[in-house]
Nucleic acid binder design. Structure first.
Lengths: 341, 341
DNA sequence: GTGAAAGCGCTAACAG
DNA sequence: CTGTTAGCGCTTTCAC
């Protein structure tokens, strides 16, 4: 509430009896200035709560100290902890994080990319589940991809090891006696959906399970779509003994639809989610899911974007995160009737 | 990907054979310039895909054309459609929206407010469920409150008519034969939680129901807290016939906990949520909830902040939104045994 | 180690 | 209706 609306570097300079350039130095290159003057100037800066005007500064430095996080929507909880990790790390280095949601709309995503360029944002973190669409981005913007491979374009990428995740998961389910496995996941429009389908199939083959294409149905990441997809699976001639949801958000609808159709989870049909999103531990029933260190990933992603902003020419890195099963209450072993006799 | 990184107003001016100020005019005050020159200049602007440098512009105008939305966290879905409405309306007027999450952390919220001032953001929309905490905000920033009353401070406010909402809801439940009503809601730290508790009690009194304080339990807006609060209610000596959740996110945990304790929804215990958040239609079972026009509210909130940015001295407005019951599958009538004979 | 001066790209008086 | 001019507040050579 302090009425310091328009205190400039000039005023600080006058107060301290130095030239504006000296004030600028104590802010940006403190090591260049004499300890005594530095401290005096700093005191005035603190007292007046002086903050450099970002416009003037940006005009000069061409940097905004802002990084953008682009997510597909605000209704997918998987980004919550990730975003928190990013924001915390960014703040440490005095960057601001802004979030844009593309609302799963290509046109909007384009507009956002354009805005990001116009705004002279220093870096962009793409956590979009959509196909890439960043032509409108000035190429000088630092970029980092989450859950999408940009390594061939020299872009730092952070991805989940879904192959191993599905290997673990299918192995786990097989161990529980499951063989008829349904899969509800983002469809063709979605890079990460496609990747998961491939990983799913690979694991199914490895464990010699038959892949039933009727049991793999697309759902564009909302709970409602998860519901609809599940209904389709349940209306097929043969019922799965377990349904995997590509995300916990999807899992909400899977759980709901199974119940709606009169089946019990996990007694009749088991369910597994993905991402360990907030709330999945409290679902009806608590959802067994695949988790990873989303918060930690956030920190590292932020680290990466800062590095790239400052050293654009560094060789790009790729970091892979493993996923682990969190057992809760939606998977039950199947009693093998053959052995029951 | 166009390599237009540094095209300035000067270059456009030269191309068009006019003075930079004329170019500036066609951008900012087109009506002031001759149709012919305007069109010629505009053509060059389009061709070169020229965008004014926001730093230079901001330095001059003291406006960033950015408005911030501050939410308590990224894990509450109630803001999803609201945010979308805001973003859409804002874009129409060429504003960018940035989102900050306070992560329900006071210190962080303070930092965010400070950043917002430093960044010279034009307007801030507070959709925070926390107690107000915006001392760090330069007072010249335009502000709008959602779900919190700022009218006494001359701040535009958009609030939900929870009084009428609870009146409707309790009446509805009473009509279904419910009298023992539990309530899970954000506690003392939360302005909107307090407001809901007051409205709840008022309605309970009106319909001559006894308020049992053991059945009103605080939960800080996460599903998990909703779960814990519900467990408390269910372990009380007397069971409620219905539990109201202050938000659908809380409702997830309410549903989960009731099931966990071995009760059936809605046969044994009914549940009602609040806000009609994305996914609540697909829960297990689909959650009966109180909805309002969140998307429409978003549009109007954006409208308001734009108005206030441009005319800071306008008298402040207060807009109240009504809530309505969406009947789904979590409320069941009670068979009154007295009349059953 | 510090001051002087130029200029980042734009907008807004002020003339004409 | 359009050009000229003077900054907005800061950083950064370049001298000293």
């Amino acid at each position: 509430m302090t009425k310091k609306d328009t205190i400039t570097i000039l005023e600080i300079a006058k107060m301290s009896g130095v030239n504006p350039s000296t004030v600028s130095r104590v802010i940006n290159h403190p090591e260049m200035v004499n300890v005594k003057t530095r401290e005096r100037v700093q005191r005035f800066i603190n007292e007046c709560n002086y903050q450099p005007n970002p416009f003037a500064r940006g005009l000069q430095t061409k940097k905004s100290k802002i990084v953008a996080l682009v997510v597909p929507n605000f209704t997918t909880l998987s980004f919550a902890k990730l975003a928190r990790g990013i924001q915390e790390r960014l703040m440490e280095s005095d960057y601001s994080m802004v979030i844009f949601s593309s609302h799963e709309d290509e046109v909007l995503e384009k507009k956002i990319c354009k805005k990001i360029s116009e705004l002279h944002i220093d870096g962009v973190i793409f956590a979009s589940s959509m196909m890439p669409n960043y032509d409108e981005l000035a190429y000088s913007v630092a970029k980092v991809f989450i859950d999408r491979d940009g390594s061939k374009d020299g872009i730092d990428t952070f991805i989940l090891d879904v192959e191993t995740a599905f290997d673990k998961l299918i192995k786990y389910l097989v161990g529980k006696g499951h063989t008829k496995i349904g899969f509800v996941v983002g469809g063709e429009e979605s890079y990460s959906g496609l990747k998961k389908i491939a990983a799913f199939k690979k694991a199914m083959n490895k464990y010699e399970l038959t892949i039933d294409d009727n049991k793999i149905v697309g759902a564009f990441w909302s709970s409602k779509e998860g519901w609809n997809a599940t209904i389709k699976i349940l209306e097929d001639s043969e019922l799965p003994t377990v349904i995997i949801a590509g995300s916990d958000t999807l899992g909400v609808g899977v759980l709901g639809a199974i119940n709606f159709k009169g089946f019990k989870v996990p007694e009749e049909i088991s369910v597994v989610g993905f991402n360990n999103e907030p709330g999945s531990e409290s679902m009806n029933p608590p959802l067994t899911t695949m988790e990873y260190d989303d918060y930690g990933m956030g920190k590292e992603v932020a680290e990466a974007i800062i590095r790239r902003i400052n050293k654009p020419e560094t060789e790009s890195i790729t970091k892979i995160y493993t996923m682990n099963i969190i057992e809760r209450s939606t998977v039950k072993g199947i009693i093998d009737k053959e052995n029951d006799i």
